[in-house]
């Protein structure tokens, strides 16, 4: 049987690989659009050489589209950078709403492929805890992955962060068909290993259609 450390290590690598793959795919898509817009500009230049007048408004619109894709790629790279740095320290003070927002952004393509929308709902006041950021991101991803499958196409999942007396909660809400999901297999050994390391609890509130992670304010890493 694998030890908790083995499970977390293997799962962590898979998680890191999955997120890296989606990030590279998204950047590639932005580059493909920039490539086509640059190509279209070249086409117009060649046509102008042959005497066809250039339309300044059209050129301006193409430049705008390139700028838009550069901003999109910048946003993706910013998230990639934040995600990569989450392995820097095993214990760190983190703002839960920021982590929920990052995970919603990184999961965007997986959600879109399943026809699901993920909406982070930040807390009114910052909810700060000391924890292992990478393990927490991994746990959020596993819960979100399960919740997206349970919710099904056309539905929206909210990620709500809440401050509690002893720490904080992350609620994956509006999971309509949670009762029909394979809850006998969730949490599995991989989620349990992460929950144990983070000193956290996970409850499936079938009636409310929510998965709830409860986290302590501080863990000694």
């Amino acid at each position: 049987m694998n030890s908790k450390r083995d499970i977390i290590g293997e799962q962590g690598l898979q998680f890191f690989g999955k997120m890296s793959a989606t990030i590279s795919h998204e950047i590639n898509n932005a580059l493909a659009i920039i490539n086509e817009n640059a190509g279209l500009l070249q086409d117009f230049t060649l046509m102008a050489d042959k005497g066809m007048p250039l339309d300044p408004e059209r050129l301006n619109s193409l430049a705008g589209k390139v700028i838009q894709q550069i901003r999109r790629a910048e946003g993706i790279i910013k998230n990639m950078n934040r995600f990569a740095h989450s392995v820097d320290e095993p214990g760190k003070s983190v703002n839960l709403s920021d982590i929920a927002e990052l995970m919603a952004a990184l999961s965007g393509r997986f959600a879109s492929m399943r026809g699901v929308t993920v909406e982070p709902k930040p807390a009114a006041v910052p909810v700060t805890i000391t924890t292992n950021p990478f393990f927490l991101e991994n746990l959020i991803w596993l819960c979100l992955d399960f919740a997206m499958d349970a919710a099904g196409p056309g539905n929206t999942i909210d990620i709500i962060t809440v401050k509690t007396e002893n720490g904080a909660q992350i609620r994956f809400a509006r999971v309509e068909d949670l009762a029909k999901a394979p809850l006998d297999k969730f949490p599995s050994e991989r989620e349990k290993a992460l929950l144990d390391t983070l000193k956290a609890d996970l409850v499936s509130d079938v009636g409310a259609g929510a998965l709830v992670i409860t986290l302590p304010r501080y863990i000694d890493t």
Partner: peptide
């Protein structure tokens, strides 16, 4: 599914 990509590439092929 990338609307911007497909629209621009489509325009380039139409020009050809």
């Amino acid at each position: 599914d990338e609307k911007e990509f497909i629209e621009t590439l489509s325009e380039r092929l139409t020009l050809r």
